[in-house]
């Protein structure tokens, strides 16, 4: 790797980390700010960058991102949307990663009939395209943050299971695992000490790209009206509200849209960088 491309890579990584840091900052500042995301002020309907009528409570953003079709401050809604998307994303990733990796590792390690059975189950879940199953599940279970996390986790664990199973299948044939076995190490010890550390790298790559797909999936469900319960703000539902006022108030789509795009872009750039760094094949 030349020094020039190294600089380019680290620049990409810094920009990504900056954006993600900002996202995180938005999330942790939500409880401390005096936000009024659901406050309806009729005088402010669809306003952007004009004289605004502040309510007596006043939002900390002072309406600098404009107002939506109900006169709610977009700054406040954007902040709460950041929170929603962050909570759902990490909720889903933690659940899917624990369940998926657990099932994948055990399945790959034990092998035999159990593995055969689990592979079939994984194949069946992979047969549902994209977030279609999540759409059906959250549609049936009804809106709400917990239901969204459940629906996306039911779809999400499969990727981790497939990946970790394939990794374990390859690693358990290696000599260091064979010798640990010969020395009489317990299965738990072999899995935790001799196998898991070796599958961390590919899992980390999957984890990073996973953030992007869950952020998009949550926003997509909310866009369809199947995500969090209204009036709680989500970037996806903010975009949906805005699509009806594209002519009069494009800021309603642009504000949450740009935020969503930046986060996904940052995660994807970071994912590329992590993959380039960890993937031995591409060196």
């Amino acid at each position: 790797m030349t020094s020039q491309s190294l600089i380019k890579v680290s620049m990409k990584v810094s920009i990504s980390l900056l954006i993600l840091g900002l996202w995180f900052l938005m999330v942790i500042s939500v409880p401390f700010l005096d936000l009024h995301p659901d406050e309806v002020v009729l005088e402010n309907i669809l306003l952007f960058g004009e004289q605004q009528n502040l309510s007596e409570s006043g939002s900390p953003g002072l309406g600098f991102l404009g107002y939506d079709d109900l006169g709610r401050p977009l700054f406040d809604r954007l902040m709460v949307g950041a929170y929603t998307s962050f909570m759902v994303t990490f909720g889903v990733i933690i659940v899917s990663m624990l369940v998926g990796t657990g099932i994948g590792v055990i399945s790959g390690y034990v092998g035999g009939h159990w593995d055969h059975f689990m592979t079939r189950i994984i194949d069946i879940f992979m047969a549902f395209p994209g977030i279609l199953l999540a759409i059906a599940l959250s549609g049936l279970m009804g809106p709400g943050i917990t239901n969204v996390i459940i629906a996306l986790s039911i779809v999400g664990w499969v990727g981790y299971a497939r990946l970790s199973r394939a990794q374990v299948m390859a690693i358990k044939q290696r000599e260091h695992v064979q010798s640990a076995k010969a020395l009489g190490a317990s299965h738990t010890r072999i899995i935790v000490l001799h196998i898991l550390p070796l599958i961390v790298a590919p899992l980390l790559i999957e984890f990073t790209f996973g953030i992007a797909s869950v952020v998009i999936a949550e926003a997509g469900l909310s866009f369809l009206g199947l995500g969090v319960q209204a009036p709680q703000a989500s970037w996806g539902s903010m975009i949906r509200d805005g699509t009806q006022y594209l002519l009069m108030a494009p800021h309603m789509v642009l504000v949450p849209g740009i935020a969503l795009m930046l986060v996904v872009l940052a995660v994807n750039m970071l994912g590329d960088a992590v993959r380039d760094k960890l993937d031995v094949k591409s060196h």
């Binding site: 998009i216 996904v264 750039m269």
Partner: peptide, 28 residues
Amino acid sequence: LLGVSIPNFLMGPLLILLFSVLLGWFPV
């Protein structure tokens, strides 16, 4: 990279904004 990062439900409204609302080339 940009294409992967813009989900359909954002790309759609953006295209509508540009080609239907501003330019008037295609139906909304």
